[in-house]
Computed example of a mutant assay.
Amino acid sequence: MSPGDIIENVTYNELVRSSKECRPILHRARKAILDTQTNMFSQYTFCNPLTHPRLPTAYLLAVGGWTNGHTTNEIEAYDIRANCWFSVAENDEVPRAYLGTAIFNGSLYCIGGFDGAEYFNTVDKFDLGTNTWQEVAPMHTRRCYVSVTVLDEFIYALGGFDGEDRLKTAERYQPSTNQWTLIESMNEKRSDASCTTFHGRVYICGGFSGDECLRTAEYYNPQTDQWTMIASMSSRRSAIGVITYANHIFAIGGFSGTSRLHTVEVYNPCTGTWHNMPSMLMPRSNFGIAVIDNRLFVVGGYQGFTTTSEVECFDVETNEWSAICDMEISRSALSCCLVYKPGL
């Protein structure tokens, strides 16, 4: 309920107006709603019993990207309960597109990317409790079109483009020591790929080698510091979305070298095979991807002629895609991640 609804439907209600007990409750409720709208991720919001959310247990964040011919630093959040997007906070950070993001220990990390002129090796950390930004240790290499994921106590940054070459190098960041360490390089150069984790391994699929869009995929074993090739996808996919969902690895959309894709294929690590799944409602590349409330969401992206604000989700139980609320701004080259709310 919005403050406007409270004013119209509650404040002037005769029963409420005549009750001394109701007035302080109404005042606290209005203050709580206003505080929630102005500072969505404050500690007050999480701890106040009036604003402490029951469901969902997480928000989906859409960070950065390319919109209206320029990069953006806009961060939007999706509330699955209300099926709506809202702007989290304005910030003075350098706008980034083709970045990677990760949530670790209550902070959002924005990694690498491109501002239209410069390719970044820098990493910015946003504390979701205090709403403050801090620059942390930079990567060893500038990485635009970078693939980022979290496994155990590390944030991994794989491949990308440094402004001159497509990269096969990879590194990982340990927040507790604020240090990046190079790991074994991948078998192939990959920019515009996408990665995920499954059973203690990091999987990366597709991308662009500098010569062609890739259908290959491989995984990293941190115990042995080795990369191993797996079965190739049926389609070449650059600017792809890859995520673990329903005990499988989903490879979604992307660019084949000739067209944007709406097709989906899924890898079963137990059998080492790929199979097709229902296609998205629309083709898209360079989109955000996340799993929340046991549904797989794809966010924004590029359709081949324009960026989009459209969002859709896949439910493995119904085996269907459905459209949901659009973002407030149209963007591609964004990155998505989940914020799990403390205390839930």
Rank of each mutant, 00 (worst) to 15 (best):
residue 50 L to M: 11
residue 202 V to L: 12
residue 217 A to I: 08
residue 233 M to K: 06
residue 139 M to E: 06
residue 325 C to N: 08
residue 129 G to F: 11
residue 263 T to A: 09
residue 155 I to A: 02
residue 76 E to C: 01
residue 151 L to I: 05
residue 95 P to T: 04
residue 303 Q to M: 12
residue 279 S to F: 00
residue 246 A to Q: 13
residue 26 L to D: 01
residue 313 C to R: 13
residue 43 Q to S: 13
residue 49 P to M: 12
residue 282 M to G: 13
residue 199 H to I: 00
residue 138 P to Y: 01
residue 19 S to K: 11
residue 38 T to C: 11
residue 231 A to Y: 02
residue 123 V to A: 02
residue 344 L to F: 05
residue 119 Y to G: 00
residue 62 A to G: 07
residue 170 A to F: 06
residue 92 D to I: 03
residue 104 F to Y: 15
residue 42 S to C: 09
residue 211 D to C: 10
residue 337 C to V: 14
residue 113 G to I: 03
residue 213 C to G: 11
residue 279 S to C: 13
residue 127 D to A: 11
residue 115 D to K: 09
residue 59 Y to W: 15
residue 114 F to D: 11
residue 14 E to R: 15
residue 327 M to I: 14
residue 314 F to E: 05
residue 5 D to W: 05
residue 238 S to C: 14
residue 6 I to A: 01
residue 79 D to Y: 08
residue 99 L to I: 02
residue 313 C to P: 06
residue 282 M to V: 15
residue 239 A to R: 15
residue 110 C to H: 01
residue 158 L to K: 11
residue 83 N to G: 09
residue 57 T to N: 13
residue 332 S to F: 01
residue 57 T to I: 06
residue 27 H to G: 05
residue 8 E to Q: 10
residue 313 C to E: 10
residue 25 I to Q: 14
residue 199 H to T: 01
residue 157 A to M: 13
residue 38 T to M: 14
residue 167 L to N: 02
residue 339 V to Y: 15
residue 96 R to S: 05
residue 1 M to D: 00
residue 159 G to K: 08
residue 85 W to I: 09
residue 62 A to H: 06
residue 253 G to I: 04
residue 312 E to C: 12
residue 112 G to T: 05
residue 38 T to E: 14
residue 39 N to M: 12
residue 106 G to P: 06
residue 55 L to N: 10
residue 293 D to T: 07
residue 247 N to G: 02
residue 92 D to W: 03
residue 163 G to D: 02
residue 248 H to G: 00
residue 251 A to D: 06
residue 8 E to L: 12
residue 340 Y to H: 07
residue 303 Q to A: 10
residue 137 A to D: 04
residue 175 P to M: 06
residue 164 E to Q: 07
residue 239 A to M: 12
residue 39 N to H: 11
residue 139 M to P: 01
residue 23 R to W: 09
residue 118 E to A: 12
residue 281 L to E: 04
residue 285 S to Y: 05
residue 5 D to Y: 06
residue 35 D to Y: 01
residue 208 F to R: 03
residue 164 E to I: 03
residue 44 Y to D: 08
residue 260 R to P: 08
residue 48 N to R: 08
residue 82 A to S: 15
residue 341 K to S: 01
residue 114 F to K: 10
residue 29 A to S: 06
residue 81 R to S: 11
residue 201 R to L: 13
residue 144 C to G: 05
residue 99 L to Y: 03
residue 221 N to F: 10
residue 293 D to M: 06
residue 201 R to S: 13
residue 336 C to W: 11
residue 324 I to D: 02
residue 108 L to V: 02
residue 212 E to Q: 14
residue 123 V to F: 03
residue 206 G to M: 07
residue 225 D to S: 04
residue 122 T to L: 12
residue 276 N to G: 12
residue 16 V to L: 14
residue 338 L to N: 09
residue 69 G to D: 03
residue 296 L to N: 09
residue 316 V to N: 15
residue 300 G to R: 03
residue 265 E to C: 13
residue 40 M to A: 05
residue 300 G to W: 04
residue 10 V to M: 04
residue 203 Y to A: 10
residue 320 E to I: 00
residue 122 T to K: 09
residue 11 T to M: 15
residue 304 G to I: 06
residue 327 M to N: 07
residue 208 F to K: 04
residue 276 N to P: 04
residue 15 L to N: 11
residue 11 T to I: 14
residue 2 S to Y: 00
residue 243 I to D: 02
residue 232 S to M: 03
residue 33 I to N: 05
residue 339 V to C: 08
residue 261 L to V: 10
residue 136 V to Q: 05
